[in-house]
């Protein structure tokens, strides 16, 4: 028999991720459940051996290249800070340039006015027809969205938390996925037609729930 109720708590217990209350409850359960005790002992032995996995040391060259890329990225970003349009060395020249520009504009305007007055009224080009398009009206949904206040950081965090917490349907899917894994495993050990049927039915449920989730 498999102890269904505590199979999920076991990995959390092994890695010390249960809360104090959960840990106490699980330890109380361990006192009465020989199967969970045995499973815990075996898993602990496996993890002790797994911890000794040898991992080669990455060469220092990799880290040097990463550091250099990080340094370049931040230096480039600093270089891209917008440069002021006006250099302060030319501050003394500014009023004179402004005056010169104003004079040029005035002369150009006078010349234009003179040429228009000298022309015959018939020679004047017809006034172009200007068609002003009606500005598109925003859809009510967009209007609503634009008038809504932006969510505060707390609200955004709550929304994120809601996104990460599984819905009952997702939870059911996980349960089914877990059961399907378990049955697959049992099938590998003992090929029984009853298991086969059960697996097929569970797989069907998983597919249906997955499509509902989408």
């Amino acid at each position: 028999m498999r102890c269904h109720r505590h199979s999920r708590a076991l990995p959390l217990y092994l890695y010390g991720e249960l809360t104090d209350d959960e840990r106490r409850r699980f330890e109380n359960h361990l006192e009465t459940c020989a199967q969970c005790r045995q499973e815990l002992e075996t898993f602990q032995g496996i993890l002790d051996s797994a911890q000794k996995q040898a991992v080669p040391t990455p060469s220092e060259r990799v880290f040097n290249e990463i550091r250099s890329a990080a340094h370049n990225a931040i230096t480039d970003a600093a270089r891209r800070v917008p440069v002021p349009m006006w250099d302060h060395r030319w501050d003394g020249l500014r009023p004179r340039l402004v005056a010169a520009a104003a004079c040029t504009l005035l002369i150009a305007a006078l010349a234009l006015l003179t040429s228009v007055i000298r022309r015959e009224p018939t020679q004047l080009a017809p006034e172009p027809r200007v068609i002003i398009a009606e500005p598109p009206t925003p859809s009510p949904v967009l209007e609503d969205a634009l008038t809504q206040p932006l969510p505060t950081s707390d609200q955004a965090d709550t929304l994120m938390a809601e996104m990460y917490s599984p819905t009952p349907l997702e939870d059911m899917l996980a349960e089914l996925e877990a059961n399907t894994f378990y049955l697959h495993e049992q099938m590998a050990l003992e090929t029984a037609p009853a298991f086969d049927r059960q697996v097929r039915s569970l797989e069907h449920d998983v597919v249906r729930l997955a499509s509902e989730l989408e």
Binding site: S7, P11, T42, L173, A174, A178, F181, E185
Partner: peptide, 17 residues
């Protein structure tokens, strides 16, 4: 979901066993 992750770890350990 967390449940799926825990189920995967549990079955990984069982497979190793």
């Amino acid at each position: 979901p967390l449940g799926t992750v825990l189920a995967r770890m549990h079955y990984a350990l069982k497979k190793l066993r």
